[in-house]
């Protein structure tokens, strides 16, 4: 189960990077970036999973005394939670820049932006 998720996550990262590097439309690049972002999150969550254990929330089903042998690693989950929220912030910022660029230049094709080319 862990390997399945890891393979999926790595494939998503590769596909997202491919899309981001080969497309010339900025919006498409952002879409591909968000796919790669999801892939990274899946890999990180899969790292913390242990077969046959349950979520790190203690209640009637998981008493405090048995916690250490019943729950999975909570640290990667905390990391991924942060990563998703920051990911939304990054996506918003990229979209705001793309919109502003379109307003100024009238296009979203990255081949048209030639000011910094050499």
């Amino acid at each position: 189960m862990v390997y399945v998720a890891m393979v999926t996550g790595f494939i998503l990262i590769l596909m997202g990077l491919y899309g981001a590097l080969t497309n010339s439309n900025i919006l498409r690049m952002i879409v591909a970036f968000s796919v790669a972002n999801t892939g990274v999150n899946i890999v990180l969550v899969a790292v913390g999973y242990i077969d046959g254990r349950t979520a790190p929330i203690l209640d009637a089903a998981v008493p405090v005394a048995e916690a250490a042998v019943r729950i999975i690693d909570p640290v990667p989950q905390a990391l991924v939670l942060t990563a998703i929220v920051i990911g939304l912030g990054v996506t918003t910022l990229m979209l705001a820049y793309a919109y502003k660029l379109y307003e100024i230049k009238g296009t979203l094709d990255i081949a048209q932006f030639s000011e910094l080319k050499w």
Binding site: I50, D51, L58, A67, A68, D73, V75
Partner: peptide
Amino acid sequence: ADNELNLTGRYYAEHTA
């Protein structure tokens, strides 16, 4: 894949409550 928690995770699991 791990079979049990590493040190950090074990500390959190045992001491949080």
